[in-house]
Amino acid sequence: MKPSLSCGLVAASLALAAGIQAAHADDFPTRPIRLVTPYPAGLTPDVATRIMAEKLGKLWGKPIVIEAKPGANGFLALGAAKQAAPDGYTLLVVGDAHMTTNPKLLSSVPYDPQKDFTPVSLFFRAPFLFYTSAAAPYASMRDLVEAARKDPKKITYGTPYVGSPAHFGGAILAQATRTEMMPVHYKEGAQIYTAVANGDISFSVATIGSGLPLVKAGKLKMLATASPQRLADYPQVPTVKESGGPDLAIETWVGLVAPAGTPPAVVQKLNAGIAQVLKDPELVEKFAALGIEPQSSTPAELSARVRDELAEVETRIKRLGISIE
């Protein structure tokens, strides 16, 4: 009888806990939510976060307090979120660099992207384009590749840091075309686009939001989009393959996670709210102006993306020979 009584007590306890979590989720949120971000003020992820936070605050009737902790490869922000109570009142904005690249590229990181955080939802994705100076002699990706073949190591590209999407993009292009293209790393992203515009470096791989201001100013030109298809808002820009280059795709994504142990019912409530506001017409329009596309997901889909990309990044780093010196 004792085993049956014990099993009954366990089942009752689990049912009670589930009931408490469900009740908590029904009332959630009852106070402000803290949204920790590793991005500096003014950058596209920061601007997008503030747009979404305003919509979520209106939806839930509670303020969304943004806490920016930039620097140290995102370690400050991720550390703060990792140590927060797993109650749904702390969310973390993270990019693929934090969740899939840094853990494989850096010798050590003070967090485990899969064990220390609970996936909530994707937030947005951003396609990349190849930019050159408006005065550069390259009219297509074919021209750029041919220039690299004629004069090895003369073609250079700017990146904000080792292992960035821009760095991977240039390295993948060089490997796919069997050419030598030299990365030039800059401390600030804005320096890259100025350098390209001035002809100091040959090209850059960047999002629409990063390069568009100088395109409008007549200093940069969009050579090709690193997407499988042309972008709806820029149909005149060919894909890399259409422009005479290899078939490649480069994009970045940003998502939302919570501290590990956050109750599933609360995660689902957060996920549903995020999915709802990402469909808001005003938000969609503002994101389009930033050159990004709102994209939600289920927690399971984000978890699978992180898992798969960790394996992909590890393979890519080894294949391309990228390392932190």
Rank of each mutant, 00 (worst) to 15 (best):
A224V: 00
A260W: 03
K55Y: 12
I51W: 07
T100D: 11
D233Q: 13
P103Y: 03
T30P: 06
Q236Y: 11
I324C: 09
P38R: 02
V205S: 11
P183G: 01
T132D: 08
D200V: 15
V10L: 13
S210R: 14
D96T: 08
R305A: 11
S6E: 15
A11V: 11
G61M: 05
T298L: 02
P63D: 04
A41C: 09
S133F: 05
P213F: 06
G209N: 03
V205K: 02
A249N: 14
Q21S: 14
L9P: 04
I66N: 07
T225C: 12
L91I: 03
E282N: 11
L59S: 10
L129Q: 10
Y193A: 12
L122H: 11
D116A: 07
Y111H: 09
T207P: 09
G88F: 02
L248V: 13
L223N: 02
A232H: 09
G273T: 00
T298F: 05
P29C: 08
Q191V: 07
P246I: 05
R50W: 05
L214V: 11
S323D: 09
A226E: 03
D96G: 14
S164E: 03
P259N: 08
P63T: 10
A126K: 09
Q175W: 08
G95T: 05
G71L: 00
L43D: 15
P165F: 01
Q114L: 15
P63M: 07
S297C: 05
A258M: 00
D308M: 04
R34A: 13
P213G: 03
M52V: 13
A232E: 10
V313P: 10
P40E: 00
H185Q: 15
A260V: 05
L214N: 04
Y39T: 06
D112N: 09
A289E: 10
A260F: 03
V205R: 01
A265R: 04
K187V: 13
A139G: 15
D247N: 08
K221V: 12
D143C: 06
A68C: 05
D26T: 14
L16M: 10
D87Q: 00
P213S: 04
S164C: 08
Q83F: 14
P264C: 01
L35P: 07
F168W: 01
A148E: 02
I66H: 07
G61C: 01
A12C: 10
Y138F: 13
E251T: 12
K219R: 14
A12E: 06
S107H: 13
G321K: 00
A176L: 11
D46W: 07
K216A: 12
A304S: 12
T252W: 05
